[in-house]
Amino acid sequence: METVINDYISREVVQDAALLPLGNATSLLETGILDSLGLLRLVVFVQERFGVTVDDVDLIPEHFESVDSICAYLRSRDGEGAGRAVGHG
């Protein structure tokens, strides 16, 4: 899951090559990697790729701070039975 999300952010969201390669613990916010449209595209991607629904109350910095925190959030959603991972993330 970390690899899939790291790949997506590195390819589609990162806008400054100096920030690559992207570490899974690197802050997406302090580095300015994530902007509002980047977040929206990322949410659309994880919803399609992992078959979860991201609620608006879950769109908070704590869940999108880094690749690691995104994965932790998605796994917690999975634990609630809110969604099933699709594919081999």
């Binding site: 916010l29 902007d35 509002s36 980047g38 109350v57 769109l59 910095p61």
Partner: peptide, 10 residues
């Protein structure tokens, strides 16, 4: 604040 406009609920 930085990042606030990114997260709609914030």
């Amino acid at each position: 604040p930085e990042n606030t406009a990114i997260f709609p609920a914030r």
